[in-house]
Design a binder for these strands. Structure first.
Lengths: 219, 219
DNA sequence: CTCGTTTTGTTGTAAAAACAACAGAAATGT
DNA sequence: ACATTTCTGTTGTTTTTACAACAAAACGAG
């Protein structure tokens, strides 16, 4: 717990909550911790979960594989971020995606039912955390909308441009690195990897952009 | 106001709140009402909004048109539903989509800042409404994920199957009607209308499904 | 360092989608 | 009831994508 406090302090869920109170909340929500090796699943499609997941170290992909084996990566979760909360809050509805560790990871689990019910210990931070959770959800919502605008583009090139210019905007620079390798980027944009590689090469020769591995520069 | 109370009672935002208290909340959040003709915009891409919108009558599409005129319909809002809340809660971030009335509509606007701050009138329903808002957001999140699974399918046929089987599941029947005409369905699934029409016809001749206008039956 | 594995780019081919144009059907307004 | 507009299905052509196969490069484990 102690070693992750700095990461948790940066989590939006605990914005406006002091270190001691974060610990109090963790205790109040009966937090547990678990380590995952690269490739292990934190939860799977169809399961029912009732814990909010917070990634303390490593990285996680929210994704789903369909009947034919096509993978779709919904989002990448980085250290300090939360995931699974949309399902945990309504434990009744089955999870639509898998959460898989893409590198060795540590995850904290917080009981969401305890969060939503009044705390008998008169833990005054419940309402703050609930509001923070609400903010996080609106943020995720906007991210999903943004992703929709990318993959609703008709051609691979347009999808790439939509995604890459958004990344440039987010980082505030024409040069940036992306958190995906080629296959993952293709799965994120819902296109074929080789066709996408081909399109990237064309765009490079046309002078639209430059890239080396995961580092891109828009020109 | 009075004439819409039945609609509002069904809104998840006011779940567990009595009629009188709904009125109190409307007063507390300085609700305003506005009528829109078919085709009019409630808000537009790039704007900043600070009111939660509740559709009291009519229907609204959340959509965006890109530089080339391609339209993407994110979701359909039906009577009693809420929209715009993901942007209103953080007034700072610009709206990513247009909200347009697809039929003559009435919309109620609720000031979200008042909701998030402690009510000086010691209006005890704030916390209930905030929790309801949180539930609604998780619901929308799951809907967006669901939509992602549809449009991340590679072929038009797979997109159609993914969407239509989900509709069948939601209505609990193999026969159901959809809230879109052909062009709107194409814009929702991010495909070309004529190609989609063509694919639907093929599926009909193959005996996969039947349709007449907006009424579909999966076989 | 070396061998085996993974990642990436490249090419060719087959399948699918976008696009465009149009005709008939349905809906709408007067 | 009629004229006009919108909606839907159909067809043919062009563009784009998926798919498959492969070689070079990069990476990792021993």
């Amino acid at each position: 717990m102690k070693k992750y406090i700095d990461i948790l302090k940066r989590n939006h869920l605990f914005s406006g909550v002091s270190e001691e109170n974060i610990e109090a909340i963790f205790s109040c929500l009966s937090a547990t911790f678990k380590e995952y090796k690269k490739g292990e699943y934190i939860f799977r499609q169809g399961e029912h979960i009732e814990n909010i997941c917070i990634l303390l170290s490593g990285s996680v992909h929210i994704q789903s594989d369909d009947y034919w084996g096509n993978r779709s990566i919904v989002s990448e979760v980085t250290s300090g971020e939360m995931f699974g909360e949309s399902y945990a809050v309504h434990g009744s509805s089955a999870v639509l995606n898998d959460a898989v560790a893409t590198s060795d990871s540590t995850v904290a689990f917080l009981n969401v039912n305890r969060l939503m019910t009044v705390c008998s210990n008169s833990c005054v931070f419940h309402s703050t955390v609930i509001k923070n959770l609400l903010f996080s959800l609106t943020h995720k919502n906007r991210n999903l909308m943004q992703k929709l605008t990318h993959i609703s583009k008709r051609t691979t090139r347009e999808k790439l441009i939509s995604y890459l210019s958004n990344q440039a905007k987010l980082t505030g620079s024409n040069s940036f690195s992306i958190p995906f390798n080629r296959q993952q980027l293709a799965d994120f944009l819902s296109v074929d990897r080789s066709a996408m590689s081909n399109e990237l090469s064309k765009m490079k020769t046309e002078g639209l952009l430059n890239f080396d591995k995961n580092n891109f520069t828009l020109l």
